[in-house]
């Protein structure tokens, strides 16, 4: 199997505001191939979240090119980008963003209508995704009735329910104890073993060390890419 380039960044910059301008990204170039498992590390404020949002088409770069599956994102309409997000990208946010107004199952199924799934199919797939994160029996609960780790797993179930080719996770273990964090990373590894391309932002150096590839972001630049050092390997 020839791994193709799923994500490509070329001299991507992102500048916020004008007085004074904040250069969140200062020319980032790298490529992620299908099936890779990548950790993004770096200090707070270095531009990791900005990078992830741009990778996931939630934000547009100030300059440079972003390609997903070879397509230049800048050339795509809002509708087409939304379709890519609905079908090909799964997000896990640090703050979960679960809604208290509905059950865990409905939270997981929330994004499926945008991909055009029928109601019966949605319930089935949401239940299955909950099963994969070990929460099938909590499908009827409200998110507030769950522990922090369980909520993070619900957020992961929501990210993978649409069977996306790419999963982007922003500090999925940030609020968790190291044991729970490790189990979340294990879950992401399983997903990756199933063929998904996965990028994870983490502050935890020990966790990052177990990833096959690490991107080190500092002050809006990639200062270290473990893939660029072929001898180190996995």
């Amino acid at each position: 199997m020839i791994a193709t380039n799923v994500l490509e960044l070329e001299r991507v910059t992102k500048t916020y505001g004008t007085r004074p301008p904040v250069h969140a990204l200062r020319g980032v170039s790298f490529t992620v191939r299908s099936g890779e498992l990548v950790a993004i590390v770096g200090p707070s404020g270095s531009g990791k979240s900005t990078l992830l949002h741009i990778l996931g088409t939630l934000d547009r770069p100030s300059s440079g090119t972003v390609r997903i599956d070879g397509q230049d994102v800048a050339a795509l309409s809002d509708r087409r980008l939304a379709e890519i997000r609905a079908r090909s990208i799964g997000f896990v946010f640090q703050q979960f963003f679960l809604t208290e107004r509905t059950t865990v199952l409905e939270n997981v199924a929330d994004g499926l209508p945008y991909g055009g799934a029928a109601p019966a199919e949605r319930r089935e797939r949401a239940a299955e995704a909950l099963g994969r994160v070990g929460l099938r029996d909590r499908a009827g609960s409200r998110p507030s009735e769950l522990s922090g780790g369980q909520r993070q797993r619900v957020a992961i179930a929501r990210a993978l329910v649409g069977r996306p080719a790419i999963v982007l996770a922003d500090e999925p273990t940030g609020n968790l104890d190291s044991g729970t964090g490790a189990s979340i990373i294990e879950l992401l590894r399983e997903l990756n073993a199933g063929g998904a391309t996965i990028l994870v932002i983490t502050h935890d150096g020990d966790l990052a060390a177990r990833f096959p590839r690490r991107l080190h972001v500092l002050d809006g630049r990639i200062v270290d890419d473990s893939a660029a050092r072929p001898l180190e390997g996995v």
Partner: peptide, 16 residues
């Protein structure tokens, strides 16, 4: 706002 952002991340268009 966060719900709007989440829905957009999940695949909602501006139209949705």
């Amino acid at each position: 706002r966060s719900e709007i952002g989440l829905r957009r991340a999940l695949g909602a268009t501006r139209g949705h």
